[in-house]
């Protein structure tokens, strides 16, 4: 079984020939296809429905998110909350930032930059 990591809302290519399954894949609510760019998945539900089809081709997609504070990539499968989290967001926090002393101030600063653009 091949495992591939993707981010919600970012285009990716499926390294398999989908053949007849292509129709079923693009019919999933939350999965979009743009010729030349590839597929994008909107959320966890779309991803789990997509995995139900791709598993037949020996491929599983796993979600990856970005840390709101430091911008690092965070692997959902290595998170201590992987069993209880719904994993349907693009932005979360990395372990270092979550448990740092000044997480609240850092978080406020990053939200100010992102939402109010400065």
């Amino acid at each position: 079984m091949q495992v591939m990591k993707i981010k919600y809302g970012e285009p990716f290519r499926i390294p398999r020939r989908l053949g007849d399954l292509f129709k079923d894949v693009v019919r999933i609510d939350g999965v979009d296809y743009v010729r030349g760019e590839g597929f994008t998945v909107r959320d966890y539900y779309a991803l789990s429905n997509l995995n139900k089809i791709l598993i037949r081709l020996g491929l599983v997609l796993l979600p990856m998110v970005t840390c709101t504070i430091c911008g690092r990539d965070v692997d959902c499968e290595e998170c201590e909350y992987t069993d209880v989290c719904r994993k349907d967001v693009n932005l979360c926090l990395c372990r270092e930032c979550t448990y740092s002393e000044d997480v609240v101030d850092k978080y406020r600063l990053s939200v100010r930059k992102r939402v109010f653009k400065g």
Partner: peptide
């Protein structure tokens, strides 16, 4: 609006704890 992740919940709680 989506549910918060457990790590985001930690940030909410950290503010109150402080």
């Amino acid at each position: 609006f989506r549910s918060l992740t457990p790590r985001q919940i930690i940030v909410v709680l950290s503010r109150i704890v402080r």
